[in-house]
Amino acid sequence: MKQSVNILLSFIAILAIALAAAAAGRADAPGWFRILPYAAFGLFLAGFVYRVIRWAKAPVPFRIPATCGQGKSLPWIKSNPLDNPAGPLGAIGRMAAEIFLFRSLFRNSQTEIVDGRPVYGSAKWLWFFGLMFHGSLLVVVLRHLRFFTEPVLPAVTGLSALDGFLEIGVPALYLSDATLLAGLAFLFLRRAVLPQVRYISLFADYFALLLIAAVAATGLLMRHFFPVDLNAVKTMAMGWATFAPVAPKDGSVILYMHLCFVFILIAWLPFSKLMHLGGIFMSPTRNMINNNRSLRHINPWNTPVKVHTYKEYEDEFRDKMKAAGLPVEKE
């Protein structure tokens, strides 16, 4: 039952943010929109750096790469450089495959009990929708550069044209928006429907998904149903980028909601599970080279252990040992 409470609470949190944003827009608070973006961005940047530095300081005394294939060994044994990298090239390749293709998730497997016996099978759905969601999110973020660059980057215009090439409706529906929503829907339903996943899902898990969904939903509503004055939006965004912020002119409620969701998302990101954005680069089990057998690694902070060697022992007790008739190495 507690798990349903988590879903409910995160919905309520999202609604509360939406209402607060709407109230802020109504109560002539747009002045806030000259300060909030800097506060949110500052938290994002500082928090991100702080988290990475803190991870970097964490002790990693041993070489702990996850070995998922044959390591480099004798020349006639075929090794797997990507799954068990023996050099920097292999590690870079492994990280690239992890970051761009979610390779380890591709190996996701599922156990089912069939006729009283466990049966193992591959489970690719999470990988597929996960990759779709992240790719779409990247495209969406890049497309938004049209509001933050003047003149607009040609690459951004090109990406938008490619993204909307089906020309469904006016303004054209972006395919990345559709795939983003599909990905989010899968990730949310997976948490809400599968009992095992629901059991381990916390408030922050639902909230992260719903927050991104709220950003996407308000953005889509603005694009397709409640059009906003794009010139005013861009003038506002460029005002932020040139450190000459102007409050949005007669912005719609839905624009304030979109902005508030985004501010909360980026300000909260470094302190949430969404920090896997930086964390994936800092995973020792993925980014380390497996050269345990070719190089000697010594724990850098090994405490010097006080030892008493046999030589020292004999020096100390030689007379007594001789008197007792015990053999000594040195007379």
Binding site: L145, F148, T149, E150, P151, L153, A237, M238, W240, A241, T242, F243
Partner: peptide
């Protein structure tokens, strides 16, 4: 990037 690119020339 938006802070150092172009700087809103237009």
């Amino acid at each position: 990037f938006p802070f150092w690119y172009g700087k809103g020339k237009t």
